[in-house]
Write a protein that binds this DNA or RNA. Structure first.
Lengths: 228, 228
DNA sequence: CGAAGTATTGACTACCTTCAAAAATTGTGG
DNA sequence: CCACAATTTTTGAAGGTAGTCAATACTTCG
């Protein structure tokens, strides 16, 4: 079992968001940057802010006492993170790649949402959509083989990122193998082995560690639900 | 692999909710009953209604083409089911035990919610809470052993149902072993073997198939995260 | 009481994990 | 820019947990 030891972006004894800006400087609160590996917040922190990803990719994860980790979600530009049902966050959140975020005070955000029916509808729709994708994630974690999990993951990233037809089949994977493994509920070795197997089958190519060229999308798609 | 073959409560060629009541009889729409095994809706059906469980337990599940199934959630009294981000349901929903439901027209429901800030806040909080419990489910599916999964499940059902201190340690499991297996991402045989093992360890007793007496709650709790 | 469905138990197998080492990549200081 | 260390990824061999197949026991229901 492996444990990632996350490092706060700034060390500080003042209970403040990781980016370390003054709380009462409204303008400076509006947008922040994170470097690769920086933490945004931890499980148990006060949930005073909600965030919107502008650029980069975030990783939400939960950890068991003995260090076993489950990556809950990767957050891409346009998505919200940090909305809690109570006053605390219930997972860790880190930057997987250099990221820019828009920050909202939780209370102000909720007030704005409640007072604007259109905003509210959008948020509720997003929440329902996220729940739906979480349910697909359940099916994957609970019932798919290692190869099916990996194929599903690649398809999902493909559909989530490249809307441009010309670059559709070139997938960027900013996260490490350990992040992918913890997202799919398997080990880094199994992730690596199955990537290699997909390469040898001619379904993908691996130009570099964090790039996947999909050579046979339809085959990959069929492997996502019906392994070999 | 096993496939459950669900049966509609009423056979009908009219596209109508399963309970088969006239759409324009407002009063008769307000509450419905389901027998054990009845379906409420299927993946792909028009999502015209949302439901609130009054009595009994529902099961939400998704199925792969080859029949592999993942139970997404068990819905207990007080919980909502059927809120979708688009016009379709994205999972099957069945009654695990005889159930009573309150029915809302989706549009009317959303309108009511949007026009009442307090109602809205409650719904959003519930959604966030449900997401939080889904994230715990992820951790369980992806990273826990069979025994840890089963112990976690028993603890969760215990905390969800019996608020009464005297009956706290007597758990009712209305669902079948196959439902539990599909919820935990394992087989019925593994569920059965581990229940037996818990019994032989003296942690639980099994007075009947659908009843579990927890003899050593603290031991069970520790097994949920740290299987021997 | 018999039949159908459900649950338990047993024997064997397979997939994924674990442990270990080599290869590749990334980062750092001279 | 290169050399070297640290980290990450890949590959290999062995082992274990849970799955599969099969038979028996138990429950439910006509």
């Amino acid at each position: 079992m492996y444990v990632t030891s996350p490092v706060k972006a700034f060390e500080s004894d003042i209970p403040m968001p990781v980016f370390g800006l003054s709380e009462n400087t409204q303008e400076r609160l509006q947008e922040i940057s994170l470097s690769e590996g920086d933490s945004l917040f931890f499980d148990g922190d006060d949930a005073d802010y909600v965030y919107e990803v502008i650029k980069g990719v975030l990783r939400s994860s939960k950890v068991l006492m003995d260090g076993r980790r489950q990556v809950v979600n990767f957050c891409y530009p346009g998505e919200m993170v940090g909305i809690s049902h109570d006053s605390r966050y219930h997972f860790d959140c880190h930057a997987v790649s250099p990221a820019k975020l828009r920050v909202y005070r939780k209370n102000a955000f909720l007030h704005d949402v409640a007072s604007d029916p259109e905003f509210f509808t959008r948020l509720l729709t997003n929440a329902a959509a996220e729940m739906n994708s979480m349910q697909d994630h359940f099916l994957m974690l609970g019932r798919k083989t290692a190869m099916e999990k990996l194929a599903s993951f690649l398809i999902a990233v493909m559909e989530r990122t490249n809307s441009d037809c010309r670059t559709r089949d070139l997938i960027e994977l900013p996260m490490k193998r350990s992040d992918i493994a913890d997202f799919l509920g398997m080990t880094i070795e199994t992730v690596s082995r199955n990537l290699t197997r997909l390469r040898k089958l001619g379904v993908i190519d691996l130009p570099s560690t964090h790039l996947v060229q999909v050579l046979n999308p339809s085959e990959l798609r069929s492997m996502a639900e019906n392994c070999q």
